[in-house]
Amino acid sequence: MSRSTARPRRKLNQYVVVLVGLALLGGLYTALAPRTTAQEEPQQGSSDQSLAVKAGRDLYLQGCSTCHGLNLQGGAGGPSLIGVGEASVVFQVESGRMPLANGTVQAPRKDPKYTIAQVDQLAAYIQANGGGPTLPEGSLTDGDLQEGGELFRLNCASCHNFAGSGGALTYGKYAPELAPASARVIYSAMQSGPESMPRFGDGQLSVEEKKAITYYVRYITTATQPGGNDLGKYGPVPEGLVMWLAGIGGLVVMTLWIGNRA
């Protein structure tokens, strides 16, 4: 081999060594350097959303992680929250059922511990980790009131009473009264199916139908009662009781008065 051909080859070898070294260095850096956290992936969306997720994570770690685990995996006290979705968070937290005060057969409705904004942040955090049922955009109390009433009586009234007054289930469980529930809580309950309640997915009741039901429930629980006292809207039992005690009792008193001598 001539020298003239040997020199360029040596030079080429040097380049290759440098390139391999650089590649190794880069690979090592990408392998060993601190990775960005998975939670920051939704940064592709709006920055508001990522801020909400971050704030929700802080709220979660502070208030919920004791029972539900630092990574939503669940624990001794609470179930895993991966995949429950924002609907579940809105229902449980906005109605005050979570955080749970003490273990009972069913989580009771309480004064909410978080503001609506904080509920949204928590919901964003849970939704960002595993997804799940969501709430639709726009007003939730919308649609055909009459259709909402039909669907309510068909799907909801068997447990929650025809006027949303609630009712008893088995072994101490109960279907709660619907009057204190906000539209978001009503919709998210249908969407997530909390505790004993069946879940009504979008394939069974469309978004429009669920909005109509929510509208109807808000309507009957907030409408005025021009007929006077509704006696809890429990139907014929309390009404009959009042008639027997007050009505017939009053008649007996009147009869005694008329029959008595002056």
């Binding site: 009712g167 469980k173 879940r199």
Partner: peptide
């Protein structure tokens, strides 16, 4: 009576009239 009170966690079906489960 109509038996439609379904508890999805316990799979109990409850009759509201006389609590047959």
């Amino acid at each position: 009576c109509p038996v439609k009170l379904y508890e999805q966690q316990t799979h109990n079906l409850l009759c509201p009239c006389h609590q047959s489960t």
